[in-house]
């Protein structure tokens, strides 16, 4: 496959993935905060096609009820069937991806200990994680752009200050630094503030590497022959920045965005997993996975691990995009090569 085609494919795969995530989150069977206390820790509901008599039917779920003898376990009664509709209308009139006939329930990924549908929460949580990653990437790249181009253009002490600062940041283990910074801030915060804090911390620590990269590009393009040539045509600094230097940064910024997004999403997941990021009841893949630690094996509630699958898929797709974009920091016709006519 040609390089641009591969890039296009990778980027559109990512776009489709998150569009699906967003679309399904919008049409999720339940709200992310809706609790079904009577169905706490229910396993994933099976969608069936064959009824107990062995007859094939339209997809249906069996009626689910708590087992009277042992709390926490559930019994399916397939004598009572509820049809499942793709893109059906729920009771409140919302369009829903998979809609069980009332009063049936359909927990595709099971429920957590509060009886919240993990499928719906995974989708919403994915959006929270994705949003954190995107906003943090944008902020970090903005900081990197400012810092890198200032250092690269001005040289002298601003360059020294920024270079040493980024070196310092990169000489330290990121997660430790992140936790230390987090320690200085209030632990209990409203969800929105927690989100903002996570974004701020991640981008504050993450801008160093792209900034160094951009500084290098600015510096090298400042010394390029074509910049000197343009000065020979009487070009001023504004023209040089606009026409010759910043366009080169665009490609680098794009590639860096693709590299940083999955990294930052993972940092958000780690932070939330450790209990320092997005807070309950707002879901994030990190907070959802943190409950797994104690429940996964002890209770055999393996369905709590579903967010991990979505997370892995997201990172996988993002990784592909990152690789595709990194190939891009070259002009379309290939770098100028030494050829004889």
């Amino acid at each position: 496959m040609t390089r641009p085609a591969w890039r296009l494919q990778a980027v559109s795969a990512l776009a489709i993935w998150y569009a699906l995530l967003a679309g399904f989150a919008w049409m999720a069977p339940y709200s992310w905060r809706e609790q079904h206390r009577e169905f706490a820790s229910a396993p994933p509901t099976a969608i069936r096609f064959v009824d107990p008599t062995g007859v094939w039917r339209m997809p249906f779920v069996c009626s689910l009820a708590p087992a009277p003898d042992s709390p926490g376990s559930y019994r399916e009664d397939c004598a009572v069937r509820h049809d499942v509709w793709l893109f059906g209308r729920a009771q409140d009139g919302r369009m829903v991806v998979l809609c069980p006939e009332q009063p049936g329930v359909l927990f595709l990924f099971g429920t957590d200990e509060l009886g919240r549908d993990i499928f719906s929460r995974s989708l919403a949580g994915g959006l929270v994680t994705f949003a954190t990653g995107v906003v943090a990437t944008l902020v970090a790249l903005f900081l990197a752009f400012l810092g890198g181009s200032l250092a690269g253009l001005l040289g002298g002490w601003p360059d020294l200050l920024i270079s040493r600062g980024t070196e310092l940041l990169m000489a330290l283990p990121a997660l430790y630094l992140l936790l230390a910074l987090r320690a200085a801030l209030p632990i209990q915060t409203p969800p929105l503030l927690a989100f903002a804090l996570a974004v701020a911390l991640i981008s504050l620590l993450g801008w160093a590497r792209p900034a160094r990269l951009l500084r290098g590009v600015v510096m090298s393009s400042r010394g390029e022959g074509y910049v000197l040539a343009a000065r020979g045509f009487g070009a001023g600094p504004v023209y040089l920045l606009r026409k010759h230097i910043f366009p080169r940064l665009r490609g680098v910024l794009g590639a860096q965005a693709a590299v940083l997004l999955p990294q930052f999403m993972l940092v958000e997941v780690a932070l939330s997993f450790l209990g320092l990021g997005v807070a309950e009841p707002l879901p994030s893949w990190g907070t959802m996975l943190s409950s797994i630690q104690y429940d996964l094996v002890a209770d055999r509630r393996s369905w709590l691990g579903f967010p991990a699958i979505l997370l892995t898929a997201s990172i996988l797709i993002s990784g592909r995009v990152a690789r595709a974009m990194e190939l891009r920091s070259q002009p379309a016709g290939g770098a100028p090569r030494e050829t004889t006519p």
């Binding site: 993972l266 997941v269 996964l296 996988l316």
Partner: peptide
């Protein structure tokens, strides 16, 4: 390479426990 460290640990942890 694309497998998040956290997912990896959790999976291994579960296997080890099992």
């Amino acid at each position: 390479l694309a497998l998040p460290e956290l997912v990896l640990v959790l999976a291994l942890f579960a296997v080890a426990q099992a």
